[in-house]
Design a protein around this nucleic acid. Sequence first.
DNA 1: TTAATATCCTACCAAAATGGTAGGGAATTT
DNA 2: AAATTCCCTACCATTTTGGTAGGATATTAA
Lengths: 138, 138
Amino acid sequence: MLSKKTRYAFRALTHLAENYGKGPVLICNISEQKNIPLKFLENILNELKKADMLESKKGKGGGYYLKVSPKKISLATVIRVINGPIALLPCVSLNFYEKCADCDEKHCGMRKMMTIARDATLKILEKKTLQDILVAGT
Amino acid sequence: MLSKKTRYAFRALTHLAENYGKGPVLICNISEQKNIPLKFLENILNELKKADMLESKKGKGGGYYLKVSPKKISLATVIRVINGPIALLPCVSLNFYEKCADCDEKHCGMRKMMTIARDATLKILEKKTLQDILVAGT
DNA sequence: TTAATATCCTACCAAAATGGTAGGGAATTT
DNA sequence: AAATTCCCTACCATTTTGGTAGGATATTAA
C-alpha cells in the first residue's frame, strides 16, 4: 500500500502537472486546493525537489514547478522517492536491494516468483506518467 | 514490501508443501528448520488455519499440514491473509476496498492507473502457487 | 537597506504498526 | 492421569507514519 504521504505527493504533482509551463505555484495554494496539511506538504515537495523532479523559487513570485514535462515523470519514480521500494522483497528490489539473510539467491523459489511479480508491476509503473494520470482523470 | 511475518509464513508454508501428504508437522520442527521464532510462528500458522489453508491436529502425532494441494494455494491468497491488500490504494483493492475520502472514483486518474498496476501484479500472484515456489527452488 | 515573501531546515511529538514474548488453557493420545 | 501439542489472551519494545513548531535563509520590491 502507498503511504498517505505518497498519495499527497501524487496529488501535489498532478496539480503541478496541470500548471506545467505556467510558472511557479505556491505551496499554500496546493495545500488549500488539494487539501494537504501545509507543513507536511512543504517537506514532501522539498523531497521531490531533492530527487530532481521539481524546481523552486524563493521570494515573491516564487513557488514550485515541475522541472521536466509530466510525460517524463513515471509513477515508479515518484513511488520510489516517497514510498520506497516497489518490489515485494528487498532481495528483488532494483533500487533498494538488500541481500537476504538466510537464503541462497540462486536457488530461492520465492525470490524467483517475486522477481516475476516485480517485473509485471514495473512494466506498468515505469510506463505510466503524471501525464497519464491527468488524461485518465478527464 | 512484504512484512517479516509474511516472509515467515511463506517459509513455513513451503516447508509444509514439501511435506504434503506425509502427515502433520510440528510447529517446533518448522521453527527450528526454517529459523522462525517459535511463539511468533504459532500465531502465524493459526492465522493460516483460520483462513482455511491449513489443518491441525493436537496431541501426540499432531501438528500442522496443508489442507489442500500446494498447487491450489496461490501467492495472492497467502499475502492477503498475512500481509493485507495487494493493491497500492484501498480504493482499488478487490478484497480490502475502502472508498477514497476526497476523489470522485469515476474521474480519478490515479485510481485508473493503480487499477491497471494491480491487475498486472495480480495476474502473476494469483497464478503462481506454493508448488511454483518449490519447483523454482530446485 | 529594510520589509515582505517564500522556501528550507532542524527538531520534536503522538499514534499506529511491526515483531515479538509470556503464560496458561484446551484437546488429544498413550 | 500424564504427556503432548495446538490455541488463546495479554502484554511489550521498537520502528514507521503522519504530522507540528519555529526559526533560518534566499529573493524581491519599495
